[in-house]
Structure formats: structure tokens, C-alpha cells
Design a protein around this nucleic acid. Structure first.
Length: 879
DNA sequence: AAAGTCTGTCCCGTAGTAAGC
DNA sequence: AGGCTTACTACGGGACAGACT
């Protein structure tokens, strides 16, 4: 079992994750960890919370600057690699992140405490701070709106030092870039100063204090006193700003507002750039061609060599950088955003050096525990469980299934909302930093066409999320709270849509943006361990439809009840949601292992009981006789090829009246929400399935894993938990299970029992290495109070069922040997329906994998779906 | 080639905030 | 110091023209 680092160290870890990469050196003594209680008090202290992110008075600017140059020169021996930006920059891009248990640790000096001289490997290129890094990179992309560059607003907080990267490597390298004096950093001390100013006294932060211009001089003339994207950008030296076309200011303007910036044609970019892109945004020939950037000419030449159709010009030179990078995926992802311009140094060679050439999404995935040496975050597409040992990350409140993304040329459309108002809520039992990013539907990898966007708003007054770090596509949200659990309302995350042409232009790019409009929000949490490793947990949200039209027109199933019935059907199924047409169709389907439809039937819609927001149908009888529960799916169609996401429905063996619904263990993973929950006892879907009569509360939320502390089933007998765990994860049954008793102050953790012996080199718990996409799915729901309250009883029923039917839960659905993978599909032919099917199939297959008790298959699935690299290779070099 | 669909962009109203009076 | 006005923004919904299927 991995032990949790002492509270104080956690505290400081938090600080350093948040600040160390900002070249801030915190003179804190963490050698004497206080008690948990003390720490909790500390953390709960408003004073501390208000100062944690910045630690006024603790910053040593000299050292900060030093950090910028010397990645391992932490003042404190306790500073670890994660605190040192440089470490991260070398890590991610080259996939040298290794599971800490059985892989050789790369010479990352700070990983084990102390900061010896870094041993740079070929893949770990330490780039000293150099003024050249701050040249053109500082200038924002002329095509990227302020929205898309909103992360740059955080330059003021120095967190935007990371603006130079957009994709996984970049995100992961953020701290490194910071340390490297990335363009945004502009020399550690200054960046730190700004950052400190803003976060020490956010409300009082006055960018005028900076040596640069006042935000009031921003081209956008923001009235805000706080440093926003606009005013921060305006703070750049004019020399740099002039090197590139002026940003169009991005935001939509009212009529007459700055008419000079309005393009004569509605399709002309509001940007004042001389470009005449038919789509309006600054194009390569207007942007990349800027003589002010040495890289620009390089990019131009590269563009010319590749004979890029002018029609599909990209908005940023970074894309050209991709092309120059021979289309290597790693490079691709690395330079995926305007922000990557920060890394487009005048020296192309340096660009090559900085950007790993072999990074790829298609890399092996680890099958080990989510423990990593050092503090380097694993790649986003690295399969991670949402819980490990006593720690769990869960999305307590799912985002709304529809959030219209904004384009670069638009202003922000706000942050992602929750269905019932508010914002998604992420809960972790231990705190550290929280990464938030976008995934590609059920496949957790960066979405090429969407990007997280930091929404700076005044509503972030939660003590847990009052500080937000945006690292391009990543939002890094410090979590502050007690050790029991931390809820953070994610009200700072918007979604930015990148132009399809920009993405599709990339060499080797296979993802098409057309009709590819769904994303998942992926959350990660890093929990420092006592042994210096970092435990990374990850979970994902339900799919979020980002397109305007689809989001408005697609039927959205918010809830339905019941979630199961007997095979003879006949019961009434109430489906509630939105965009239900007057004459909807509800189609039940059963898909085979190959994803093909094996059974499909229209349910009879009871029109007299249906309305625009609800549909009552008569559940059709299942076509086949079965002795075990059968998982099928249904969707709602309102015609015009508009249909909802697949909803899982379970046919129970038997007929109505013959016997009462028997709980079916295997169905947990087939829950209507497609959510894989490591512990079935903690899954609301489990409850739903076990209780066919349980009405779905539209406000219910699919919990990813553990219920809240308020749940009534927090303390089940360990034996029961073991039983459940064995049923769900028989692959761990071969290893000794250990009942973990959580510390009294870790209420949330106490429900997580049945973990494995941490001494095991390859903890059986690793079988929980759910692909992150397994932990999310289905429509957004909230767990109703009734559901919560009934969960215990249903679990008891489950327990009883297990006791009387020990073999039942092992009766799992046949596992498809090979799941169709998205990458193998013809994207050019993909339709929205296809996407739906893919999603459904993907999730379903995952659940099936888990149920099959065949770890190999599950791993195979993971690899096929995320890396398509043969299993077993994860022990080797992920490259 | 035509029709429908989708994408990217713009328009506009509302609410909120800060500065100025 | 507090209230009012003004100016500006973010946010959100709608719509359009061109591209695409």
C-alpha cells in the first residue's frame, strides 16, 4: 500500500506544484510534518488558504530566478522534481515517465528528495534560460483570440509561463518551461513577482505595477483591473507585440465597437491582420510569414514544401511547426496551439531539441499501479484509475451534456456548467493539484479539436478552487481543504473549439473534426506519496456535446426509470430529457462483440404519456431467453438522424411476477451510466441496476467510485467489500487482499476497502487500471438523495445475493476478443450516429472487458484503444 | 447539380463590473 | 462615502454564408 505523505508534506507539495514551477522558492521547512489534524487546521485556515498559493513573504526571488536556470536548485532539500520546472519539461515529451514500482527510474534528480545535479539524458534536454526563448514566443498568435489565449492571462500569475504548450507534452512540461524561463516567464523573478502580486492579493493586484504596460492600455481596453488575457497581453513589450500581427482581440464586439477592427466582410477576420483568409482568422501567410520571426520563415518554407492547400491554412504557426516536425505525433501534440509559439524559438534546431520527435499517442500504456517516480505527470492518455488504495478522484457533479464551445474568433462562452446549475464538482480525498483537460470521448487522449479554456470569473470563491492554474489545455487547480475530502467546483473551465481545418491539416492527422464534437473533461489529481512517488488518479466526465447545433437538437436523455426489467418486458419506461420531439422513437438494441447490432426493436411510445421533455414507452420484450441479465441499450431519436446517446438497459432473467428482481452483480459495470466503478458497492449505477424499481432522479449524479461521505453506506463490513471486489475484479483475487482501515480523519477513504498489499511489486489493484474512459459515460445524472439513501439497502441486497449466489457474479458476459477501435474506422465516413455507436460500443466493450475477469483482455483493450501497442510492452520503454 | 448538413463566424441582448461623476 | 451613470466585458442564444456531404 502506498502510504500517503505526511500532511505537511502534502501541504507543501501542493504549494510547490502550484508555485515551484513558477520559479518560486518557498522557504518552508517540511521536515517535520505536523499531525494530520494540525495540517487540516492549517489547510482550513482561511489565512493559510488565502496565502497558500502564493505564500507571501516566502518567495526568494533570487532563488526563483535561479530556479529558472537551474532546474534542481531547490532551496529546500524537500523540494522535489515536481517543484522544478526543468524536470517536467524533459519528462513528458519523452515518455520517460515510469511506473515507480518496477521500472527503472530515470535520473530525475529531484524525485527522491534533494536536488542533485540533474542527469540529463538524451531525452531530457535542459534548456537554460535564454533571452531568445522569449522572443517571438511572447507574442500571442494573431489568430488566436483572447479566449484561446486566455491562458496567457495567467502570465500575470506566472502560471501562464506554460503557455508555450498546448498538448500533452506541453502540458506536462509546463513546469519545465517555466523553469526554462519560457517566454511567458520572462525571467523567473519578474514572473514570480507578477504571479505573486496577483495571487497574494488577487483583488488588489494591479498589473500596472509590472514593468509593462497597464492593462488599461490593452487594445481591448478592458475595464477590469484584474489581469486578463487582454491586459496581460498588452503588457508585452511593444517590440514583441509588433513582431506579430495584432490580435483581433478575439472577443465578439458589439456593433460599432472598434469598427476599425471589423472586417468588411462578415467572413473576414476581425483581426486587423492583413490576411485575407476566407475564414477570417489569421492564416499562415499572414501570420507565419511574419518576418519578425525567424521561425516564421522556416514555417513558411515548410509550408511551401508541403504544398499546403491555402484553403486549409492554420491559424497558428505552431501547426506549421508540426509539419516541420515531420508530422510526428508527438510534435504534433506538442505544438498544437497558439501558445506553442512560445516554444517556437528562433532557432529551429532548438525547437527540434525541445520537442521530442518520437512522442506519440500510440505509446504503450502501463498496467501497473498509478505510481510514478518523481513528480512528473504521466501522459494524459496514460490509463489511470480513479482510485488507488485509499485515495480516490471522482467527479461528483457531472458537467452538462451540452456546452457550446467557442471559437478562437469568439469570446468565451463561459465555463462548463452542470446540469442542475453550478459547475462540475471534482472530489478528491487527498489534495494536491488537479489537472483538468479534455479527452476525446471515451478515449482519454487529447482532443484535437477542442481545448480547455480558462474562464476567469469572479465566482470562483470556493476555498477549494480560488486559485486556478491554466496550463493551456490543462487547468491546474490547487485543491485546498481538509484531508478527508476536497470538493472543487470547476467553474473556470470553458471549451475552445479549434478550427477543423487547422487540425486536419496536420500531417498524419487522422482525427476529423467534422461531427466530432463531443469531449470529455478529464480530471487528474496528483497525490504525493511518502516514498517520493506521485500517485496519479484520473477520471473523466460524461460526454459533452460542444457544437451549437447538435447540442441544441440532439435528444438528451437525462434520466430514465426503471433501468431494468424482466425479459418479457411490458413495463413502462419513463425517459426524461430534452429535445424530445413530438414523435420520438425509442429503439432498443443489442450489440454483439463486434459492435454490430444483433437485436433492434422500436419500443412502443405511449404518446398520451409523453411530452417534449419526457417519453413513456412500453419496454419491448427481449428477443431471447436468458438465464443471466442481459445488457442492452436504447436511444431516443427525434428523427433527422438525431438521436441521443446510448443508454444502458438491463433485461433480467425471468418474467414479471415469477420472482422479484434478483440483483445481478455483473450488471454493475453495465450500469446505465456506462461508468466503471472500481468498487461496485460504491456505484450508484450498481444501485440502479440492483433496484429496477428505483426511479432515476434527474438530479442524480453518476458517482465515479466512492459515494460522498454523507452516503449511508460508508462503513460496510470489510468482508462485504472484499466480496464485492472479488466479484468485480477477480483478477485480483489471486493476490492477497488486505482490508484497509482508514484513518479516522479520512472519512472518505474509509469506504475504500479491499485494496491490495502495497508491498507487492505489481499490486493487484492495478487491475483497476481502468482506462480513464471507463470511469465515465452515459448521460449526466445526479445521484438523488433517494438513490443515496437506498444505496445501502441495495448493497445489502447485493451482499445477500452474493452470499447465496457465489457464482453468479462470475457469470460475466462474453468478452469481445477484439473491439473495434476508433482509429480503425474511416473517419471520413463517420457520422454523428457512428460516433454515438462508437462511444457506446467503446464503453460497453470496456465494461465487458472488466467483467470478463480477463485482465489480459482488459489490457488489450486499453492498448488497442489508446495506444494499440501490444500488451506487455509497457514494461519497456514506452517509446 | 441540388439539397441538406455542418462549420465558422458574426450579431445582439443581458448581466455584471469598474470607473467616473 | 454612497449612489448613479457610463462604458465595457463576459456570457449566451441566435442566425447566416460558405463549405461540405
Amino acid at each position: 500500500m502506498s502510504t500517503i505523505k505526511s500532511a505537511q508534506e502534502l501541504d507543501f507539495r501542493l504549494l510547490f506544484e502550484e508555485h515551484g514551477k513558477h520559479s518560486t522558492a518557498l522557504a518552508l521547512d517540511v521536515k517535520t510534518p505536523p499531525s494530520n489534524q494540525a495540517l487540516t487546521e492549517q489547510l482550513c485556515s482561511p489565512e493559510l488558504q488565502s496565502h497558500l498559493p502564493c505564500l507571501p513573504g516566502t518567495v526568494d526571488y533570487d532563488h526563483a530566478d535561479g530556479l529558472s536556470h537551474r532546474p534542481y536548485c531547490g532551496l529546500q532539500q524537500n523540494f522535489r522534481a515536481f517543484d522544478c520546472p526543468s524536470i517536467e519539461i524533459t519528462s513528458i515529451a519523452h515518455n520517460h515517465i515510469e511506473p515507480g514500482n518496477d521500472l527503472e527510474v530515470l535520473p530525475l534528480g529531484g524525485a527522491e528528495g534533494g536536488y542533485p545535479e540533474p542527469l540529463w539524458t538524451r531525452d531530457q534536454l535542459y534548456l537554460p534560460l535564454d533571452a531568445c526563448y522569449r522572443e517571438t514566443a511572447l507574442s500571442p498568435s494573431p489568430c488566436s483570440s483572447l479566449s484561446s489565449r486566455s491562458w496567457m492571462s495567467d502570465l500575470s500569475s506566472c502560471e501562464s509561463f506554460s503557455h508555450g504548450y498546448d498538448d500533452v507534452e506541453g502540458e506536462l512540461q509546463d513546469p519545465a518551461l517555466l523553469a526554462l524561463g519560457s517566454p511567458g516567464c520572462r525571467g523567473g523573478a519578474f514572473g514570480v513577482e507578477l504571479w505573486q502580486q496577483k495571487y497574494q492579493h488577487p483583488s488588489a493586484f494591479n498589473p500596472v505595477l509590472s514593468p509593462y504596460q497597464s492593462p488599461r492600455q490593452s487594445p481591448c481596453h478592458s475595464p477590469r483591473t484584474s489581469v486578463t488575457e487582454e491586459n496581460w497581453l498588452s503588457c508585452r513589450p511593444t517590440s514583441r507585440a509588433s513582431s506579430r500581427p495584432t490580435s483581433p482581440c478575439g472577443k465578439r464586439r458589439h456593433s460599432g465597437a472598434e469598427p476599425h477592427t471589423r472586417s468588411p466582410s462578415p467572413h473576414h477576420s476581425p483581426s486587423p491582420t492583413p490576411g485575407t483568409s476566407p475564414r477570417g482568422s489569421v492564416t499562415d501567410d499572414t501570420w507565419v510569414g511574419s518576418p519578425a520571426t525567424a521561425l516564421g520563415s522556416l514555417l513558411i518554407s515548410g509550408c511551401q514544401e508541403l504544398d499546403i492547400p491555402s484553403k486549409t491554412r492554420r491559424t497558428t504557426s505552431s501547426h506549421l511547426g508540426l509539419l516541420i516536425g515531420q508530422g510526428e505525433p508527438g510534435l504534433d501534440t506538442y505544438q498544437d496551439s497558439p501558445g506553442e509559439e512560445a516554444q517556437e524559438k528562433p532557432n529551429l534546431a532548438e525547437l527540434y531539441l525541445q520537442v521530442p520527435s518520437h512522442y506519440s499517442w500510440n505509446k504503450p500504456k502501463p498496467g501497473n499501479a498509478p505510481l510514478f517516480r518523481g513528480l512528473l505527470p504521466p501522459p494524459l492518455d496514460w490509463p489511470l484509475p480513479n482510485q488507488y488504495d485509499l485515495i480516490e478522484l471522482k467527479l461528483e457533479v457531472q458537467p452538462r451534456s451540452y456546452h457550446r464551445a467557442h471559437y478562437e474568433t469568439e469570446g468565451s462562452r463561459g465555463s462548463i456548467k452542470a446540469t442542475a446549475g453550478g459547475h462540475p464538482v471534482v472530489k478528491v480525498c487527498l489534495f494536491s493539484s488537479l489537472f483538468c483537460s479534455l479527452g476525446f470521448d471515451s478515449l482519454i487522449r487529447y482532443h484535437k479539436h477542442y481545448r480547455l479554456h480558462y474562464v476567469e470569473k469572479g465566482t470562483m470563491n470556493s476555498p477549494c478552487n480560488s486559485k486556478v492554474k491554466r496550463i493551456h489545455k490543462l487547468l491546474m487547480i490547487p485543491l485546498i481543504g481538509n484531508l478527508c475530502s476536497i470538493c472543487s467546483s470547476i467553474d473556470c473551465a470553458g471549451i475552445l473549439k479549434l478550427r477543423n481545418a487547422d487540425i486536419e491539416l496536420k500531417k498524419g492527422e487522422t482525427d476529423i473534426g467534422r461531427k466530432n464534437t463531443r469531449v470529455r473533461v478529464v480530471f487528474r489529481v496528483a497525490v504525493p506519496q511518502q516514498d517520493g512517488q506521485m500517485l496519479w488518479l484520473q477520471t473523466a466526465s460524461v460526454p459533452v456535446e460542444c457544437s451549437q447545433r447538435s447540442g441544441q437538437e440532439l435528444p438528451q436523455v437525462e434520466s430514465f426509470s426503471p433501468t431494468s426489467c424482466f425479459v418479457d418486458g411490458g413495463e413502462e419506461l419513463l425517459i426524461t430529457g430534452t429535445n424530445m420531439s413530438a414523435q420520438p422513437r425509442v429503439v432498443f438494441v443489442e450489440k454483439g462483440p463486434d459492435g454490430r447490432t444483433q437485436w433492434e426493436v422500436d419500443a412502443r411510445v405511449l404518446c398520451d404519456k409523453s411530452s417534449e421533455s419526457r417519453i413513456m414507452v412500453e419496454i419491448p420484450p427481449y428477443v431471447k431467453r436468458t438465464v443471466s441479465p442481459v445488457q442492452v441499450q436504447f436511444y431516443v431519436s427525434n428523427g433527422k438522424r438525431r438521436r441521443s446517446l446510448m443508454q444502458s438497459f438491463t433485461y433480467l432473467p425471468g418474467t414479471r411476477g415469477s420472482h422479484r428482481a434478483a440483483p445481478a452483480v455483473k450488471q454493475e459495470l453495465w450500469g446505465s451510466e456506462h461508468i466503471f466503478c472500481p468498487d461496485p458497492s460504491l456505484s450508484p449505477s450498481h444501485d440502479a441496476v440492483l433496484r429496477p424499481d428505483a426511479a432515476y432522479d434527474p438530479c442524480s449524479v453518476p458517482l465515479h467510485g466512492l459515494p460522498s461521505q454523507n452516503s449511508s453506506h460508508l462503513h460496510h463490513p470489510p468482508a462485504f467489500t472484499l466480496s464485492l471486489e472479488a466479484s468485480l475484479f477477480p483478477q485480483v483475487s489471486s493476490a492477497p487482499c488486505q482490508i484497509m482501515t482508514a484513518p479516522p480523519n479520512l472519512g472518505l477513504m474509509s469506504v475504500q476497502m479491499g485494496t491490495i498489499d502495497a508491498q507487492a511489486p505489481s499490486p493487484p489493484i492495478q487491475t483497476l487500471n481502468l482506462s480513464p474512459h471507463a470511469s465515465a459515460g452515459g448521460p449526466p445524472r445526479k445521484q438523488s438523495e433517494s438513490s443515496k439513501s437506498s444505496l445501502k439497502s441495495s448493497l445489502d441486497a447485493h451482499k445477500e445475493f452474493l452470499l447465496h449466489n457465489p457464482g453468479e457474479e462470475l457469470n460475466v458476459k462474453e468478452e469481445p476478443e477484439e473491439q473495434p477501435i476508433l482509429g480503425s474506422l474511416g473517419f471520413q465516413e463517420i457520422t454523428l450516429d457512428d460516433v454515438n455507436e462508437i462511444i457506446d460500443r467503446d464503453i460497453g466493450a470496456l465494461s465487458s472487458c472488466v467483467q470478463t475477469d480477463q485482465h489480459d483482455q482488459f489490457q488489450q483493450y486499453n492498448w488497442e484503444h489508446s495506444s494499440r501497442t501490444p500488451p506487455g510492452s509497457f514494461h519497456g520503454d514506452p517509446q
